[in-house]
Simulated assay, not measured.
Amino acid sequence: MNWRFLVSGAAVLILLGLAGYSRMQDPERPSVISKIVPGATEAENSTVIRLRPGDTGLVADGREIYAEACASCHGAALEGQANWKQRNPDGRLPAPPHDPSGHTWHHPDGQLFALTKLGPARIVGDGYESDMPGFEGTLSDREIVAVLSFIKSTWPAEIRARHDGINRQAAGGG
């Protein structure tokens, strides 16, 4: 795995943990927090969300959007591409799975949102290359939340509970 990606991920986690959530979640808007992604604009840094895997309407929307915008790379069953941990000849990593076998659930909601909205290359910076585009300008914040909520809704209860713990840690709640 690319060390710059790991360092950036750790920085995002630290920033999320230090900042904490600034207000309760509004069902139609993400929670506001300062400083998610170093180097991003204030508007980009002002939004972090809580996924809502129990919101059946949002999850249904997310399932449709995922099928249209994500499944061609990440798989119709969230299985990702083959050998997703090994770099391709061009140096880029294949699309990882979003099912429990992948690492998606190891990241807090805010980081997943930022990665989806801005794309890994923009998050990692320093010339990092990825086939994953940012969906800013393509998907609304609500649509990104819907896709991520759909993904989380497919995880077994144990994985969802562990992911909730990661979110608590990122928010400074231990």
Rank of each mutant, 00 (worst) to 15 (best):
R87C: 14
V32P: 02
V7R: 09
T41K: 04
V7L: 11
G9K: 04
A71G: 06
E68A: 15
A95K: 01
G54F: 05
P30V: 05
A11L: 15
E68Y: 13
W84E: 08
H74Y: 01
P53I: 02
D61N: 08
H74W: 00
G75E: 05
F113D: 00
G75H: 03
V59S: 01
F113P: 00
S22D: 12
D99E: 11
P38W: 09
G102C: 01
R122G: 02
A69H: 08
G57P: 11
E44S: 02
T104H: 14
G102I: 02
V59H: 04
P38N: 12
A19Y: 06
R52C: 12
G9N: 10
L118E: 03
T41Q: 04
L16A: 12
P120M: 11
R63E: 15
A19H: 13
S34E: 13
T47M: 09
L18Q: 09
A77H: 10
E64W: 07
S31A: 13
D61K: 14
R50K: 13
A114Q: 02
P27C: 07
S22K: 13
G39R: 03
L6A: 14
T116H: 05
Y21P: 13
S34D: 14
T116E: 07
A95P: 05
T116V: 06
G80D: 08
P100V: 08
H98G: 13
L13Y: 12
V32Y: 06
Y66E: 04
V48Q: 07
A82I: 04
L18D: 09
S31W: 10
R4P: 05
I36K: 06
D61R: 07
A19N: 15
A67C: 08
Q86N: 08
V48G: 11
R63Q: 15
D90F: 05
R92P: 07
G102K: 00
